[in-house]
Computed example of a mutant assay.
Amino acid sequence: MQHLDLQVVEQAQDWLNAGETVWFCTVLSTFGSSPREPGSIMVARADGRHLGSLSGGCVEEDFLERLQAGEFSQRVCTERYGQRREDNRPQIQLPCGGILDVLIERLEPDESNRCHLAELLAVMRGREQKWRWVSLVDGSCSLTPVDSAGGARVEVAVDSVSVRMGPSLRLIIAGLSSVARACAEFAVSLGYEVIVCEPREEEYRDFHMNKDLENVRLEKILPSMFIARPGNCHQQTAVVAMTHDPRIDDLAMIEAVYTDAFYIGVMGSRLTSDKRAARLMTTGGLNPDQLARINMPIGLALGSKTPAEIALAVMADVLRVQRGIKRDEL
Rank of each mutant, 00 (worst) to 15 (best):
R89Q: 07
I99H: 12
A69H: 06
M42T: 13
E65S: 15
M42D: 09
E71F: 10
I41K: 15
Q91W: 03
R85S: 13
R80E: 10
G97C: 11
L67R: 03
L67A: 02
V76R: 00
D87Y: 01
C96W: 06
Q74K: 02
Q83F: 08
R80I: 09
T78Y: 00
M42A: 12
I99M: 08
L103E: 04
C96Q: 10
E71C: 07
R75M: 03
D47H: 10
S73P: 00
L100S: 05
G57E: 12
L67Y: 02
L94F: 07
D87H: 01
S55Y: 08
Q74V: 09
G98R: 01
E65N: 14
P90K: 07
S40N: 12
Q91F: 10
S40M: 09
R66Y: 07
H50K: 11
Q91T: 12
L100Q: 14
D47C: 09
R49V: 15
Y81K: 11
V59R: 15
F63Y: 07
V43K: 12
E71R: 11
G52T: 13
L64H: 08
L54A: 08
D47T: 11
G82A: 01
L103R: 05
C58T: 12
V76D: 04
E65A: 14
Q68G: 04
Q93P: 00
D87C: 02
E79C: 05
R84V: 11
L54I: 03
A44L: 01
G48T: 02
I99A: 09
Y81T: 11
F63G: 06
A46P: 00
G52L: 09
R85H: 06
L94S: 08
L54Q: 06
I99F: 11
M42W: 10
G70V: 02
Q83D: 11
L100H: 08
G82R: 06
G52S: 06
G57I: 04
F63M: 05
N88P: 05
D101Q: 07
E79W: 06
V102A: 05
A69D: 13
E65K: 08
R89D: 13
S40R: 01
E86L: 02
N88I: 07
D101Y: 02
D62K: 08
C77Y: 00
F63W: 03
I92R: 10
I99T: 12
G48R: 08
I41V: 15
I92G: 14
I92E: 05
Q93D: 04
E61P: 12
G97N: 10
G48Q: 09
P90A: 04
I99G: 13
D62Y: 10
I99D: 04
Q74R: 03
R85G: 00
G56R: 12
V102L: 02
S53W: 11
V102G: 09
L67C: 03
A46R: 03
